[in-house]
Design a protein around this nucleic acid. Sequence first.
RNA 1: GGAGAGGUGGCUGAGUGGUCGAAAGCGAACGACUCGAAAUCGUUUAAUAGGUAACUAUUCGUGGGUUCGAAUCCCACCCUCUCCGCCA
Length: 425
Amino acid sequence: MLDQKLIRENPKSVEENLSLRGKVHNISHIHELTLKKREIDIELSNLQYESKKLSKLIGQEISKSQNNNSPEINNLKIKGNEYRVKISEFEEKQRIFDKQINTEISKLPNFPSKDAPIGKDENNNVQVKTWGDPLKQEHLKSHWEIGESLNLFDSIKSTKISKSRFITLIGNGARLERALINFMLDTHTKNGYLELMPPALVNSESLKGSGQLPKFSNESFKCSNDDLWLSPTAEVPLTALHKNEIIDPKLLPIKYVAYSPCFRREAGSYGRDTKGLIRLHQFNKVELYLFCEPSKSSEAHQKITSDAENILKKLNLPYRIVDICTGDLGFSSSRTFDLEVWLPSSKCYREISSCSNCQDFQARRSSIRTKIDKKNTYLHTLNGSGLAIGRTMAAILENGQQKDGSVKIPEALVPYFGSNLIKNT
RNA sequence: GGAGAGGUGGCUGAGUGGUCGAAAGCGAACGACUCGAAAUCGUUUAAUAGGUAACUAUUCGUGGGUUCGAAUCCCACCCUCUCCGCCA
């Protein structure tokens, strides 16, 4: 959520900032609404002042005369009634304006950071670094081929259970998934993150708070009988955890790591990544999340990114980091580093983690503040996948494949998986 | 799901129509006393919006309503607790 005061006082700068995203945002209508609302606020406040004064006077008169029905008092009551009528008119107006302004502002995305590369779309993203040697042989198997031959998962049968884009993990596949979750959680908790396991169903308020609503209702699954949705990422419950709080600065920064299943409708991606573990309606993810003071968020962003990278390094998976350009930034983010893992079968890097600094955008939507120099200040929130489990499994299968059809398990994972090889039995 | 009780400031808790943003206590901050501390005494101690400020308004779970006036009365919803039922 952008600052309403800024929109009222400096709409030009707001438009300029938003235009960095490569799309024109005309906010003049919102600007006008805020000005009108301001007038209403002032007028209402004046009316309330007069009315309050009169009510006190009536109270005094009644206790003085011991009679609440004298003509003088009745006259005062009639006057009071006039105030009441006017006040409720203004309150109604205020309500309407508040609602309009709020709906409009919550549709506006975050400002891109000044440090984000300027660009129109994903083609303008900037590769920051690469790590490891990408495997580039011909005739390498895709992870779904490997999964099928080693009987690690089944998507065809899963359509019986649900529909397409769901997976059932089997045997070593299920075991590998579990090993990855535990490995990642252990690694991050050793690095100072507190482990949480939040609810998978979240209410509309929570989705608004982190930026998925009102604009992206199409991308999450809704439970029709309740005001509950299947959470698309642990970012949602983790933001909502501290909704409407003023957090003691001594407790900052707050660092969470959470395993959660994630549910996404993937509307509009028909035909893309239909095979394998890359794009599913349900997937597992270990998420890093951080609340900190505004002055510390850039540094924290580097840190959260390197904590996510750490997993890829330990698993010995080649990857690169991409600095997302202003035109390709997610709705809530001001700056994002994507970690992309090398998938040899498709000979390209695929996103496996997205590390974002949302600055005060989510904190303002969710009202999460701290005291800085006695002033309430919105915190900055950061999130990063650390990592998406399914895509990590895909990368391990493809990068660890051996000529005999078996798959080598990265050393760091062996204690968790219980074996250094998956082979056909 | 049924029956009952309840939601008040950082916490405990009083307040059932009138100057109440709210007694009292605890906690916290500052000051006095002290070499220092404890104890004691004194003062201060909610948030939000607008305003340079004085100040003004709003907020007693949330949203409506009644009234000149609502923490207090009415309606709806949410949440918590106890008992019963069901369940991992």
